[in-house]
Amino acid sequence: HGVWLLLGIVIGKILLTTFCYGSGAQGGIFLPMLVIGAASGAFCESLFSSLSLISGDFTAQFVICAMGGMLAAAMRTPILAILLVLEMTNSFSNIYAIGAVTIVAYLVAELLKEPPIYDSLLQAMTGQSNLESVQTFFQTNVPVVATYTDIPLQDLPLPDGTLIVSIRRNGTYIVPLGDVRLESGDELQVSCERGKLKDAKMYFQSVH
């Protein structure tokens, strides 16, 4: 009965979480992921022990390893998943087991080419089918020698979708108007499309 109860908890939690987010209701998904992972680990341990494949002394290990694996597969952050589980358990005795499960879960999710859960939620909220076009931000400094200094911002050949949001020079913020010229050492806040983040960073670091 315990095995079937745990299986029901896993399936029910997945369905309820899917229903809540599909309905557009506000709420967190971090705790539901931990509950699904913990219930899945407890179910696997109960199933194996009922089949006499293992002893019944590994419930805690299965639970915490499954939580780490669930976080790594869903969020694509294996190191963060390991650290979170270790912080919650306040013990390093199972670090190797958690690390192994977490890395395997991450690789399986990557091979299946499933997007991270937060990317999927962002796509659902923005209604964009291509997450590469979602805007992101980064900070950079103008090199001492750069090709784009002494040129008005309106004449800069910035990559498509790239915009200088703010300029900080000698502790003072400057509004990035069209006639403003960048100087070496300026701190820039730049907005660009996620798919062109690498090109935008390379442009601002170019010195030739």
Rank of each mutant, 00 (worst) to 15 (best):
Leu158Lys: 13
Leu177Ala: 09
Gly185Thr: 04
Gln139Val: 08
Val175Tyr: 15
Val190Leu: 10
Tyr173Asn: 14
Asp186Gly: 12
Ile151Pro: 04
Glu187Lys: 11
Gly161Trp: 07
Thr140Ser: 06
Leu163His: 08
Asp160Gly: 06
Glu187Gln: 15
Arg168Thr: 14
Thr147Pro: 00
Pro152Leu: 00
Asp186Lys: 05
Pro176Trp: 06
Arg181His: 13
Thr147His: 01
Gly171Gln: 02
Val145Trp: 06
Ser184Gln: 11
Pro152Ala: 00
Glu187Met: 13
Leu153Gln: 02
Pro152Ser: 06
Gln139Leu: 13
Leu182Ser: 07
Gly185Asp: 05
Asn170Trp: 00
Pro152Asn: 05
Gln139Thr: 14
Gln189Asp: 15
Gly178Cys: 06
Thr149Gly: 02
Leu153Arg: 09
Gln154Met: 09
Gly185Trp: 04
Val165Thr: 13
Val180Asp: 11
Gly171Thr: 03
Val142Pro: 02
Leu188His: 07
Glu187Val: 15
Gly161Phe: 05
Asp155Tyr: 10
Ala146Asp: 04
Thr149Ser: 04
Ser184Arg: 01
Pro143Ile: 02
Pro157Thr: 06
Pro159Tyr: 10
Ile167Gln: 08
Pro152Phe: 02
Glu187Pro: 09
Leu156Gly: 01
Pro159Gly: 02
Pro159Ala: 04
Gly161Ile: 03
Cys192Met: 12
Ser191Cys: 14
Asp155Trp: 08
Ile174Cys: 01
Pro159Glu: 01
Gln154Glu: 13
Glu193Ser: 15
Val144Cys: 07
Ile174His: 05
Val145Leu: 07
Leu177Arg: 10
Thr172Leu: 14
Pro176Arg: 07
Val190Gln: 11
Thr162Asp: 10
Thr149Glu: 03
Gln154Tyr: 08
Val144Gln: 15
Ile164Tyr: 01
Asp160Met: 14
Ile151Trp: 03
Thr149Asp: 03
Asp150Ser: 09
Gln189Val: 15
Glu187Trp: 03
Leu177Glu: 09
Glu193Gln: 15
Asn170Val: 01
Arg181Gln: 14
Leu156Arg: 07
Thr162Pro: 07
Thr140Asn: 04
Gln189Leu: 15
Val144Asp: 14
Glu187Ala: 15
Val180Pro: 05
Thr147Lys: 10
Glu183Asn: 09
Val145Glu: 12
Thr140Tyr: 04
Val145Ile: 13
Asp186Pro: 09
Ile164Val: 13
Gln154Thr: 11
Cys192Arg: 06
Asp179Ala: 09
Ser166Glu: 09
Asp150Ile: 03
Gln189Glu: 15
Leu153Val: 07
Pro176Met: 02
Arg169Gly: 13
Gln154Arg: 11
Ile174Thr: 02
Tyr148Leu: 00
Ile164Lys: 08
Asp179Gly: 06
Asp186Gln: 10
Leu163Gln: 11
Leu188Lys: 11
Thr140Leu: 02
Arg168Tyr: 08
Ala146Trp: 01
Leu158Gln: 03
Ser166Ile: 04
Thr172Tyr: 12
Val190Cys: 12
Val144Phe: 12
Leu153Tyr: 00
Val175Gln: 13
Ala146Gln: 00
Ser184Cys: 09
Pro176Ser: 04
Asp186Ile: 03
Arg181Phe: 08
Arg181Asn: 08
Gly185Asn: 10
Tyr148Met: 01
Gln139Asn: 12
Val190His: 06
Gln154Pro: 07
Pro157His: 06
Leu153Asp: 01
Asp160Leu: 13
Leu158Phe: 03
Val145Pro: 00
Asp150His: 05
Leu177His: 08
Pro176Glu: 04
Leu163Ser: 09
Asp155Gln: 06
